[in-house]
């Protein structure tokens, strides 16, 4: 097992965690793990400083979301065993799809295989999360996962500081938008 396989396994595990366990604490932990994997892989192509920006921004976005959920004081709806089995199978199917389309994706996008693999896993995991929830917290996590997947692939193509900065801003923006979604009902009425 090469060193590059470890972050891929980390990304797969975090994706399963995010899909199977719906509590915000588990989600935050899985998101933190996911960004460690993203950092690990991106650090192979981008300078450590730029890769660290992605790690820190991802953690910050997750923290903003978790703080909002904590402020709301409500637990997220839990899922029964049947739901978990269903989501588990969807995720397994998603991982199979990611590995199946990998050779074709390599023809289209000339980036390192490990980056592409990790990126595809997160892209599909993000789409699955977005498709399976209407909850603002879960939706924001899904969007962050999707964006993290894309950022991994894109880091292999473009290494501009402005792109990294703007993508970081967008990640934070998604976190803040999610936070606004969560807390908006409890804010003071307008006008």
């Amino acid at each position: 097992m090469s060193l590059q396989t470890i972050p891929i396994i980390l990304l797969i595990l975090s994706s399963f965690f995010l899909v199977l366990f719906l509590g915000w604490r588990y989600a935050l932990l899985a998101l933190a793990l996911q960004y460690v994997g993203v950092f690990w892989l991106i650090a192979q192509t981008l300078p450590i400083g730029l890769a660290a920006v992605k790690l820190i921004v991802g953690w910050m976005a997750g923290a903003v979301l978790a703080a909002s959920q904590l402020n709301l004081g409500e637990e997220l709806p839990v899922s029964d065993l049947a739901g978990r089995i269903f989501r588990g199978f969807v995720m397994i199917f998603g991982i199979i799809v990611a590995f199946s389309i990998l050779p074709a994706a390599e023809q289209w996008i000339p980036v390192e295989r490990s980056l592409l693999t990790g990126g595809l896993i997160l892209l599909i995991s993000g789409l699955i999360q977005l498709g399976l929830t209407g909850n603002p917290f879960r939706l924001s996590i899904g969007l962050l996962t999707f964006l993290a997947g894309f950022e991994m692939i894109y880091a292999g193509l473009v290494s501009s500081v402005l792109v990294v900065g703007l993508l970081g801003l967008i990640n934070l923006g998604v976190g803040l938008a999610g936070s606004y979604f969560i807390l908006s009902p409890s804010l003071e009425e307008s006008n």
Binding site: I170, G173, F181, L187
Partner: peptide
């Protein structure tokens, strides 16, 4: 994408469920 994120508070007034 930043525009889209900035338009969220325009679309969802404070106090309303998204």
């Amino acid at each position: 994408e930043l525009t889209v994120l900035l338009s969220i508070p325009v679309l969802v007034p404070p106090g309303e469920v998204v």
